[in-house]
Design a binder for these strands. Sequence first.
DNA 1: GGATATGTAACCTACCCGGTTACACGCCGC
DNA 2: GCGGCGTGTAACCGGGTAGGTTACATATCC
Lengths: 110, 110
Amino acid sequence: MEGPYIRRRRPREPGYLLAEYYLKPKGITQTDFAAATGLTRKHISSVIHGRASITPDTAVRFAEVLGTSPEYWLNLQTAVALWDARQALKDDPSIQRRRFAGNGDDGPAA
Amino acid sequence: MEGPYIRRRRPREPGYLLAEYYLKPKGITQTDFAAATGLTRKHISSVIHGRASITPDTAVRFAEVLGTSPEYWLNLQTAVALWDARQALKDDPSIQRRRFAGNGDDGPAA
DNA sequence: GGATATGTAACCTACCCGGTTACACGCCGC
DNA sequence: GCGGCGTGTAACCGGGTAGGTTACATATCC
């Protein structure tokens, strides 16, 4: 194998999962969910459409209302953010890759 | 038991672990590490002292240079951020807790 | 006295979270 | 037709913060 496993496709936005697997099945409107979380209707809409991301604050609010764990929502978000960061830095020459990696595969010691 | 397990004390800053378990043991200076990651010396110092947090961008840079996973650094950071968010929202009245929680412990169905 | 490593302050730019207000559209029931 | 509801979205704003530049101070070691 060559290198760590990296998703080929961008992970789903957490907002998609919120709408598809929580709000829709339970028949919860965005308006009601906004009221329950203490956020604005507009902000919930932004999250669902991927224009706003899940912050720690948002994750705790979602978790408290839905009875899930905050880590669940936050991990979904960081997966997306990490994927984006990897893409952006893929060939960035300002990084000296494996410069201080633990094992001695940085060439012969001589 | 009552409620989810929550750390009593704030998790360690990832910067502390960077300095204590990576830079110091390997004899890497902040200056060299900054050069290797493509960040500024000042910014590395800020991360180590908890004045700047690990973003996805930073996590990827650290991982590439040290040969670890980006998730490692990012998870350390989100653990701290989540702890802070939980504290800040602990008694926030704008959240309707368990309003849409799945199981029916929201009272008798009458 | 030099060079090196670090902390830190002031200042700046860019980004983005989350809010407010307002308008437009589609659907439903009357 | 018309009003209410749920939703999308645009414009605008305040505040926070990532990360940079420059500069100065300190401590250590040669």
